[in-house]
């Protein structure tokens, strides 16, 4: 099956069906604004097709949500974008550069928050950030600033192994922010965070987007999507079933809120 392109999505607009994932309208993106462009991306794990002909374009300063049920291909798409996984077919460009061929040139320009924390557990939070500051050639003042942003100054000298899950995620965000990247990939950035901490993360992301940073995040929290994301793509079985602003998608699906729209578009309960 061919991937859903902008044109085909436009043609099939309004053909929502609960049993089969529907295709909703995709607002066009001008070439000049595209920071991340994914064309016909497919990723296979043996016989399993994790991503099937994905097409996406993300603009500068956009806070883009990649959502979908478990196993829809969100994390795999992120893995391709960070260079951890080679596409089986199709291509992706970031800042106009091919992610496979020019990965080394791209990687200093993005920050990444993985779905599970990957800190040096035996070292303190401050030392963890300082090490990455050394790699990015960022001074210690920025380390302190990032710790303050995520409200971790008080625990900065404690080994990370003593951190709670929420603190670990905030430290991941602080690390991703260190070098003020123009692109940020976040895999469920607010998982395990309390309401206040999630609010802090949302504020940071909005602020970064306002500064022109392109943010691509995955999440299972539909309220978060409505509050934070300017645009979303809903993935189901490796394919895009809808893209657009959350409110527009709710309107298109004739549902009261985005959660119901998501349910209708994916034909299953959100996680």
């Amino acid at each position: 099956m061919r991937p859903q392109t902008t044109e085909s999505a436009d043609r099939s607009s309004g053909a929502a069906n609960v049993s089969a994932p529907a295709v909703y309208c995709v607002p066009p993106v001008s070439d000049s604004d595209a920071v991340i462009r994914i064309e016909g991306l497919s990723v296979h794990y043996g016989t399993l097709v994790a991503v099937d002909g994905l097409d996406l374009e993300l603009r500068r300063g956009e806070l883009f949500g990649l959502i979908g049920p478990n196993g829809a291909g969100k994390s795999t798409t992120l893995r391709v974008l960070i260079g951890q996984r080679t596409p089986s077919a199709g291509k992706a460009t970031v800042l106009g550069r091919d992610i496979v061929l020019e990965w080394s040139a791209i990687k200093p320009h993005f920050g990444y928050v993985p779905d599970r924390d990957n800190h040096f557990e035996e070292l303190s939070g401050r030392r963890n950030l300082a090490l990455f500051a050394g790699l990015y050639r960022v001074d210690m003042a920025r380390v302190e600033e990032c710790l303050r942003l995520v409200e971790l100054q008080h625990a900065a000298d404690v080994p990370v192994r003593s951190f709670s899950l929420g603190m670990r995620r905030k430290l991941l965000l602080a690390r991703a922010l260190l070098h003020k990247p123009p692109i940020m990939y976040l895999d469920e950035p607010t998982a395990n965070l309390d309401v206040r901490s999630a609010g802090i993360v949302h504020d940071i992301l909005r602020e970064r987007a306002a500064e022109g940073c392109t943010v691509l995040m995955t999440t299972h929290d539909m309220r978060e999507v409505e509050e934070v994301c300017s645009r979303v793509a809903i993935l189901c079985d490796g394919k895009v079933v809808a893209t657009g602003a959350p409110r527009e998608l709710s309107r298109e699906a004739h549902t009261a809120d985005f959660r119901d729209a998501f349910l209708e578009m994916t034909g299953r309960e959100p996680e």
Binding site: I82, Y112, P114, R116, N118
Partner: peptide, 14 residues
């Protein structure tokens, strides 16, 4: 296993 090698690889370090 912990993913710290990935974190280093995604930094400017080659």
């Amino acid at each position: 296993e912990r993913g710290t090698l990935l974190a280093q690889a995604l930094s400017p370090a080659s």
